[in-house]
Amino acid sequence: MNIFVFVKRVPDTESKIRIDREHNTVIEEELNFVLSPYDEYAVEEALRVREAAGGKVTVFSIGPDEAKVTLKKALAMGADEAVLIKDDAPEAYDGLRIAKIISRLIKDKYPDYDLLLFGKQSVGADNSQVPAMVAEILALPQVNVVTKLDIDDNQGTAIREIEGAAEKVSFPLPAVISAQKGLNEPRYETLKGIMMAKRKEIPLISLQDLGLTEEELLPQLELIKMDNPPAREAGKVIEEEPEEAAKKLVEFLHKEAKVI
């Protein structure tokens, strides 16, 4: 089983997002970058599939040199290889651009695979686009937002989350799967894993190596403005006996919020 996992370096979810309004970018200073949480479920699932079926797990990331730290984390968890596709372009929040890079990488450099695993979305861009786009470009079946995955030979079965229910899908490999929280409980890195990850070479591939021109990768979504949402003002806060507080709360719901 040859398993590829695609991961992204993102600010952790406790981060306060400050914006450089002149350049429409997130100010990276003081941010703590981590392996995107949903990608962590994808790495864990890849390791579990490998443990059950044998094979190899290769982790890829697209981004600046700093993304090596993210790849090292996946190696320390137990991935066999890691590869960085070096891309210093500012975040464009355009899923198609990334999907094109990944598809070209797979077609040209890594054509031998059984399973492509992703997080259901990166924390930040919140797009949920890349897995489905890669699946289309490579003409593969896709199951996104997966909370349960079973792989048996060349066949997979996945449970995917929808509104108030779940969909069960059986599909042939190779296929694209994206992970939702609940799929598994990611393991911690072991000391041995961390030591091995430290020594491991991470090969670099440039966008030129993939024969991708700047023009081809120009984002087709033009980011014109970025800002923090308008701050909410604190309203009324009361501290009274429960019966009285309940009465006043219901009065608020009825007369001001008008939801009942």
Binding site: I17, V26, Y93, G124, L218, K225, P229
Partner: peptide, 18 residues
């Protein structure tokens, strides 16, 4: 022209389409 939340709503971004 569209506005979409980034970082689960910690930021809002406006986009045009090419």
């Amino acid at each position: 022209e569209v506005v979409r939340p980034l970082f689960a709503g910690k930021a809002l971004a406006s986009f045009r389409f090419k």
